[in-house]
Amino acid sequence: MSIQHFRVALIPFFAAFCLPVFAHPETLVKVKDAEDQLGARVGYIELDLNSGKILESFRPEERFPMMSTFKVLLCGAVLSRVDAGQEQLGRRIHYSQNDLVEYSPVTEKHLTDGMTVRELCSAAITMSDNTAANLLLTTIGGPKELTAFLHNMGDHVTRLDRWEPELNEAIPNDERDTTMPAAMATTLRKLLTGELLTLASRQQLIDWMEADKVAGPLLRSALPAGWFIADKSGAGERGSRGIIAALGPDGKPSRIVVIYTTGSQATMDERNRQIAEIGASLIKHW
Rank of each mutant, 00 (worst) to 15 (best):
P25M: 15
P25E: 10
E26L: 11
V31A: 07
A34Y: 15
D36E: 15
D36M: 14
Q37M: 08
R41D: 14
V42K: 00
G43W: 01
Y44N: 00
E46S: 14
L47P: 01
L49A: 11
N50S: 12
S51A: 09
K53N: 12
K53I: 14
L55H: 13
S57T: 07
P60Y: 10
E62N: 07
R63P: 10
F64D: 00
F64A: 01
F70P: 01
L74S: 03
L79I: 05
D83F: 02
G85C: 08
G85K: 07
Q86V: 14
E87T: 14
G90D: 14
G90W: 10
G90P: 12
R91V: 05
Y95I: 08
Q97I: 08
Q97T: 09
L100Y: 07
E102W: 06
Y103W: 07
P105A: 10
P105D: 05
P105Y: 06
H110Q: 13
H110L: 09
D113N: 12
D113I: 13
V117C: 04
R118T: 10
C121K: 00
I125R: 01
T126C: 07
M127D: 11
S128M: 02
D129I: 01
N130D: 04
L136T: 04
G142A: 05
T147K: 06
F149D: 14
H151D: 10
D155N: 15
H156S: 09
H156W: 12
H156C: 09
V157H: 14
R162H: 08
W163I: 06
P165C: 07
P165I: 06
E166A: 12
N168C: 13
E169D: 09
A170S: 07
P172M: 12
R176A: 07
T178F: 03
T178S: 11
P181H: 00
P181N: 01
P181W: 00
A182K: 12
A182N: 07
A183W: 13
A185K: 01
L188H: 03
R189W: 06
R189G: 09
G194Y: 12
G194A: 09
E195T: 13
S201G: 09
S201A: 11
R202F: 04
Q203A: 06
L205E: 01
I206N: 06
W208R: 01
K213C: 05
P217Q: 13
P217D: 14
L218V: 05
L219Y: 02
R220M: 03
G226S: 09
W227Q: 01
A230T: 01
D231H: 05
K232M: 00
S240A: 08
R241P: 02
G242C: 13
G242W: 00
A246V: 09
G251V: 13
K252E: 10
P253N: 12
R255V: 10
I256M: 13
S264E: 05
Q265T: 07
M268Q: 13
M268A: 09
D269V: 08
E270H: 06
A276T: 09
I278Y: 01
I278F: 05
S281N: 15
S281Y: 15
H285L: 09
